[in-house]
Design a binder for these strands. Sequence first.
DNA 1: CAGTCTAGACCGACGGTCGGTCTAATTTAG
DNA 2: CTAAATTAGACCGACCGTCGGTCTAGACTG
Lengths: 225, 225
Amino acid sequence: MIRISKDYDVRKQEFLDAAQKLFYEQGYDQTSVNTIIDYVGVSKGTFYHYFKSKEDLLDALAERVARQRLEQLHSIVEDRKLSALEKFNGYFAGSRGLIEKSEDIAKAVLRVMYEDENILLRHKARVRSMELVVPELGKIIAQGVQEGTFNVPYPERTAEMILMLGGELKDIYARLFLELDEKPENISLAKQLIDQYEDAITRMLAAPEGSIRFHEQLNLRDFLV
Amino acid sequence: MIRISKDYDVRKQEFLDAAQKLFYEQGYDQTSVNTIIDYVGVSKGTFYHYFKSKEDLLDALAERVARQRLEQLHSIVEDRKLSALEKFNGYFAGSRGLIEKSEDIAKAVLRVMYEDENILLRHKARVRSMELVVPELGKIIAQGVQEGTFNVPYPERTAEMILMLGGELKDIYARLFLELDEKPENISLAKQLIDQYEDAITRMLAAPEGSIRFHEQLNLRDFLV
DNA sequence: CAGTCTAGACCGACGGTCGGTCTAATTTAG
DNA sequence: CTAAATTAGACCGACCGTCGGTCTAGACTG
């Protein structure tokens, strides 16, 4: 076999890129280490030179995904021209992700990601994202309290709860989306769900009724990822 | 080898009992099918006669756990003497579980259950519990709306969100509990968390301030399981 | 500048474990 | 007595992770 040496970081990113693609397409359990090394074009030994276990790779991937998400958010938080309410609504509206490209690809990804078997992948990504995002969302809420729009004693705790709810909601939402072909009524169910979520958030923040609105800017497809 | 035949249901329960004990002690992944059959004292063939896969056993266990939890709740819901508020607070106070017996055992169980590796076990139990419990808690909330204590448009949806929040909260709570020895400050963190949860629920239900109180009846240990 | 040395990227056969299958033997019900 | 249900345990392929060892770019030496 030909031997190709690469810079450490370059190679590591290759592994992460491969993992992201393969895990999303086939799931974590269903993707063997052999599949990964075949895809990257290296040997077993090389893999274990970079990661101490398959799960170690998963952790690294979760970390990378979480950081990417954080950067996305950071530009909004630091914008001094925006009110807390605008930031808040903007954050949730900005969650639109892969679905714009192709609905088929999106469905395939979701189908895999939201199988029970892949709960570990989702869980790790979510936990790490939470750790990073909670403080940022907390800042937005704190700003809102100062501006008099919101009223909560501990902004970060509230941010935590809002995000926990959001995370669980995505699960349900994904399921509704995937069943859309068989159950057209899911569209109204999903809308109802978002309404409820908006309402719950509004109440938790003690925000003016109707001020929290990311709903209209979204269609059924945009909420995920 | 001696052969022991047993009634179908008896044997099936034996498997479930063994799984419950072993999964709780060692985790799902760490408990091999061989470990289970050794514990029950039967062969591979017997195992696969009763369950079509290891995950099938997990599903069955999740189902059993969820049903047990439902029965516990059902007696409260059907009590005609209680107001919705009493039922609501009673339900949450009634969540105290295994911890009364021994703190050490509880810690061991939690330590295993709340490792990332065992997320699948937790996830399945939670999803199935939710499906069964949401309608019951929905009934309580609906009663509360009729009594004028609560004010929500869709009781079941609200129940869903309250339970989702509760489920996630348990995760954090468990972590705080497990770190208690190293971090005594977790006690106040945990209290703060519960306060926040009470507050969030109160706002989501539009219940009178201070009416939702399962807090005092619990100590740090009782909230889990 | 030619020769040497070395860090560390890379290789792939291999061990041990696991979930799951299969056939034969035994027990039980009718 | 016999058909169906149940149980035993040898067996299988796939998997993760280990290990001893190879190869090469670039630093160092004389």
